[in-house]
Simulated scan of single mutants.
Amino acid sequence: MRALIVFCLFTFASLAQAQDFQTSASHAVILDYETGEVLFNHNGDEPMPPASMSKLMTLLMAFEAIERGALSLDDELPVSEHAWRTGGAASGSSTMFLEVHSRARVDDLIRSIIVQSGNDACIVLAEAISGSESAFAADMTVRARELGLSSARFANSTGWPHPDQRISAIDLARLAAIIIREYPEFYEIFDVREFTYNGIRQFNRNPLLATMDEVDGLKTGHTEESGYGLVASGERDGARRIVVYNGMESERARASEGERLMRAALADFTLVELGTAGDVVGEADLFLGQAETVALRLTEDARVGLHVRARGDLQAEIVYDGPIAAPVAEGDVIARLEVSAPGMETRQFALEAAGTVAKQGLIGRALAGLGSLFGVN
């Protein structure tokens, strides 16, 4: 017979019911940069059209090409007709205003993508790195999967609408974290407010750079399909948070919701440390073992992110099918720690046996059987 054993490990009693944090965005995520913990998730796992926010992957590919010596910042790359027609002044889209058959320095192309969201600059880099934009998009997808960004699919380098241009908000946040961590020298450019090329002055479209001192990146996005979105990062008192959201109806709505989300990310969301790998958090009952119980320990660090209002209702439970039949070897994963709170997806952490318990001998098993038969405990 299957028995579900549930022990309440701890509960932080609250004086008032925690309220769920809400957003008007269609997709939104708040990520703790240091730990990678998701603090808030609203449809964050769902692949979405990222618009120009997908340029972060284009930039990462360029940063990696520079790192391995395939490109240098001083290289001058040719502007093809495809780059000019699809992403230049003729396209009517975000552009660096590159002239067809001219050449542009890699450093200028990178700055244009970050500050101006230049589509022509993206295509020039894509063709230089992979030979064609379509080949570059395929390489983007492969590289994203290698980095663990499993939702990512790319059809172009710019974020131009396409049914195969998709990535989740969580993966965009993780992509931003990779750029911040691995390429700090390039990340500094995301805080640049304006860039002038060929006498044309353009301004950074990230609205939070002008309203929040804590914010220093990253990238806006907008198409009719995706709505208005933003990947933003900010730091306060040594804690960095990454906010990704999409589906806003206007630039004004993007700016106001972005400020609200970032202020909440920096002030209202927190990490709760439940234990570190190896900590004993409880015990499990055994059947026919030389001991009646075995201690349970965490196999990994256990932490959760949540809104401060929900912390008072945080609960953690040890769950397993039991009693567990002996023998049990140290290291066997035999239970899980389930952690829940209002507004937070339930998290599970594996628990393993902290020791070895052998099976009872023949006489012990016989006595246990008789005890069970006559109802003796």
Results as ranks from 00 to 15, higher is better:
residue 170 I to M: 01
residue 102 S to E: 13
residue 311 R to D: 08
residue 67 E to F: 02
residue 319 V to I: 15
residue 86 T to K: 12
residue 302 A to T: 02
residue 222 H to I: 02
residue 85 R to F: 10
residue 237 D to A: 05
residue 62 A to I: 00
residue 200 I to G: 01
residue 368 A to L: 12
residue 231 V to W: 11
residue 346 T to M: 15
residue 361 G to I: 13
residue 352 E to Q: 15
residue 20 D to R: 15
residue 369 G to S: 10
residue 5 I to A: 00
residue 10 F to V: 14
residue 357 V to C: 12
residue 123 I to F: 08
residue 13 A to W: 13
residue 356 T to E: 06
residue 174 R to V: 05
residue 196 T to I: 09
residue 266 L to T: 09
residue 334 I to E: 09
residue 37 E to F: 07
residue 234 G to I: 03
residue 3 A to V: 13
residue 349 F to Q: 05
residue 319 V to K: 15
residue 123 I to L: 07
residue 126 A to R: 03
residue 141 T to M: 10
residue 333 V to K: 11
residue 48 M to Q: 05
residue 180 I to N: 01
residue 142 V to H: 12
residue 73 L to V: 05
residue 326 A to H: 06
residue 259 E to V: 13
residue 225 E to G: 02
residue 113 I to Y: 08
residue 279 D to R: 11
residue 13 A to F: 14
residue 173 A to W: 11
residue 116 Q to A: 09
residue 143 R to A: 06
residue 147 L to E: 06
residue 354 A to L: 01
residue 318 I to W: 01
residue 298 L to F: 03
residue 182 E to F: 04
residue 86 T to H: 13
residue 338 E to Y: 05
residue 296 L to K: 02
residue 142 V to F: 05
residue 93 S to T: 12
residue 70 A to E: 12
residue 90 A to G: 13
residue 377 N to H: 14
residue 208 L to I: 12
residue 170 I to Y: 00
residue 31 L to N: 10
residue 248 M to S: 11
residue 83 A to M: 00
residue 120 D to A: 06
residue 128 A to D: 01
residue 356 T to F: 13
residue 265 A to R: 00
residue 204 N to I: 10
residue 4 L to P: 01
residue 164 D to L: 12
residue 103 R to C: 03
residue 187 Y to N: 10
residue 69 G to E: 12
residue 286 L to K: 01
residue 275 G to K: 01
residue 291 A to W: 01
residue 154 F to T: 04
residue 211 T to P: 00
residue 167 I to Y: 06
residue 272 V to Y: 05
residue 80 S to C: 11
residue 335 A to P: 02
residue 135 A to M: 06
residue 75 D to K: 04
residue 49 P to H: 14
residue 132 S to L: 10
residue 152 A to N: 00
residue 91 S to K: 09
residue 67 E to H: 04
residue 180 I to L: 10
residue 252 R to L: 14
residue 192 V to H: 11
residue 87 G to Y: 10
residue 287 F to P: 00
residue 110 I to T: 02
residue 269 F to V: 04
residue 193 R to P: 05
residue 166 R to L: 14
residue 325 A to L: 13
residue 232 A to V: 01
residue 216 D to P: 03
residue 189 I to F: 05
residue 3 A to W: 03
residue 59 L to I: 09
residue 143 R to G: 04
residue 107 D to I: 06
residue 156 N to C: 12
residue 211 T to R: 14
residue 362 L to F: 10
residue 44 G to D: 07
residue 91 S to M: 09
residue 346 T to N: 08
residue 212 M to R: 08
residue 230 L to M: 09
residue 31 L to V: 03
residue 289 G to E: 03
residue 320 Y to F: 12
residue 19 Q to I: 12
residue 149 L to H: 08
residue 49 P to V: 03
residue 130 S to Q: 09
residue 136 F to K: 08
residue 203 F to I: 09
residue 72 S to W: 00
residue 360 Q to S: 10
residue 197 Y to G: 02
